[in-house]
């Protein structure tokens, strides 16, 4: 079953990849597609293919990173609602990027990637601590509330910094709407080492996440160092999400939706959940990008907006499905 799902997902990703290179303002025929992929740029159609290829790969890579990061965060917090957008991690990355643009004079993705990662990590820790206050520890409800409140707070700081600075606002707003349209081979190469590291850390934590799923006490009883396992896995998740956010801008709900669907299909074993969430995330974000281009025409709708419009109803569906006591 798992192998079947994995194969199926690979096929879906491949098909969406072809669709992503083919469709757009200018639709491309089969011959031009093949010619373009093999590097020819003789016709407009072939040039379009060459231009769409990095974007497609970019969407796959970022989607995979977000999907895996969501699976890890849900595992670490044992929280069905964990997602970088809901937990305020994206807001942390946004504030960090704004600070980088305005006060540190950053203007390139290389610069963004470090500050965004630091911002994401700080926000993640902050929200987790605020959400763990009081009785009952870090329940999904309290984490979501802490994330929402933190997002609003950080968002106000962002506008406080940007409002008197129209120039920087322009630069920031193109980053701020998460999308994959700006993906080039260079940005992919830049993010890849971080994403690879995050992937390795996450996958290596799969067993630990499986024991954490049994509850902290049982996991400790099984010989798991609970605190360390949680920290290591969270590091993997935050690196993935921070690096992806730095190059693509904040994209919500991929990390929420994908692990849920994968869990429904293949069960809760993180050794499978993590790689399959990667494939699922790649499929979702590539698909969202294609849809955004087809629906939006020349003014394409950014992938991050499509994922939010699909993902938020999904979030509400999960909330309605859960028993109240579990939230």
């Amino acid at each position: 079953m798992r192998t079947l799902v994995a194969l199926l997902l690979v096929v879906v990703v491949a098909l969406l990849g072809v669709a992503s290179v083919t469709f757009g303002v200018l639709d491309v025929g089969w011959d031009d597609l093949v010619a373009g992929i093999t590097g020819h740029q003789d016709t407009t159609a072939q040039a379009a293919v060459v231009k769409r290829m990095p974007r497609t790969v970019f969407a796959m890579v970022i989607g995979a990173a977000l999907g895996i990061s969501g699976a890890v965060m849900q595992g670490v917090t044992r929280n069905p609602l964990a997602d970088p957008e809901i937990l305020g991690v994206n807001a942390g990355a946004s504030l960090a990027v704004v600070v980088g643009i305005v006060f540190l004079g950053l203007s390139t993705a290389v610069g963004y990637i470090w500050v965004a990662m630091v911002g994401a990590a700080v926000a993640a820790v902050f929200v987790y601590v605020v959400g763990s206050l009081g009785r009952g520890g870090a329940t999904p409800l309290k984490l979501a509330l802490a994330g929402a409140a933190t997002s609003v707070a950080l968002g106000s700081l962002v506008s406080a910094i940007l409002l008197p600075r129209a120039q920087d606002m322009q630069q920031f707003r193109f980053w701020q709407i998460g999308g994959v349209g700006g993906g080039t081979w260079a940005t992919i190469a830049l993010a890849l080492p971080f994403l690879a590291a995050g992937l390795l850390i996450s996958w290596a934590s799969a067993r630990a996440l499986n024991s954490l799923a049994l509850g902290d006490e049982l996991a400790a009883g099984l010989g798991q160092d609970v605190v360390r396992a949680r920290l290591v896995a969270a590091l993997g998740g935050v690196v993935l999400c921070g690096a992806a956010t730095a190059v693509a801008g904040p994209i919500g709900f991929v990390g929420l939706v994908v692990p849920h669907v994968v869990r429904l299909l293949t069960g809760v074993d993180h050794r499978w959940l993590i790689p399959l969430s990667g494939l699922g995330g790649a499929a979702l974000l590539t698909g969202a990008d294609v849809v955004g281009r087809l629906v939006g025409g020349t003014e394409e709708i950014q992938a991050g907006i499509i994922t939010a419009i699909v993902g938020a109803p999904f979030f509400i569906w999960i909330v309605r499905r859960q028993k109240v006591r579990e939230l």
Partner: peptide, 17 residues
């Protein structure tokens, strides 16, 4: 609980609008 969480979901959807 549901009221709070549904609200958060709706507001992030509207934020993307």
């Amino acid at each position: 609980t549901r009221l709070i969480l549904v609200g958060i979901g709706i507001s992030s959807m509207l934020a993307s609008v």
